[in-house]
């Protein structure tokens, strides 16, 4: 092979470049899950959802439109479905787990209980690195995002 002295370093630089996220993450200790202010230990995103004295009373009072397990995994799907139904199909109500009808509205239904944006949405989303753009428009309540 010709030009080995150029090709090999080139490949190495390319690999280093492509793996930058890994190196940056290793260098950055902030990537650890944030500490739960109530329990004082670092836990995964489950902190805000299941802790006994968690920041969100909505979860403990079991009044959500769907069960916690489903919401934890698929809340984005549900919100997307709501958006489609409410805005494009003109439907208004969603039948919740408890058989009651809820108005399909992020601000008027979800955020009424889940009002602590920083601890409820932001913490896990920051940790998982999934950027939210919901609140570019929707108003997150008292705890406005920066």
């Amino acid at each position: 092979m010709y030009n080995l002295d150029k090709v090999i370093p080139g490949i190495i630089i390319l690999i280093l470049f492509l793996t930058t996220p890994i190196w940056l993450n290793l260098a950055n200790l902030k990537a650890l899950p944030p500490k739960d202010p109530h329990i004082g230990q670092a836990r995964m995103c489950t902190t805000c959802h299941v802790s006994e004295k968690g920041p969100d009373e909505a979860v403990t009072s079991e009044k959500c439109v769907a069960d916690t397990q489903y919401m934890r995994g698929y809340h984005m799907k549900l919100l997307d479905e709501w958006r489609e139904k409410k805005i494009r199909k003109g439907e208004v109500y969603y039948k919740g787990l408890d058989g009651k009808s809820y108005v399909m509205s992020l601000q008027r239904t979800c955020l009424k209980c889940h009002s602590d944006y920083l601890n409820f949405c932001d913490r896990c989303h920051k940790f998982t690195g999934v950027q939210l753009d919901c609140f570019n428009c929707h108003i997150a309540g008292k705890e406005e995002k920066k």
């Binding site: 992020l106 601000q107 955020l111 753009d133 570019n136 428009c137 929707h138 108003i139 309540g141």
Partner: peptide
């Protein structure tokens, strides 16, 4: 003032 019942736009 923001009306918390309705979104703003972006």
């Amino acid at each position: 003032a923001l009306n918390p019942e309705f979104p703003t736009r972006t």
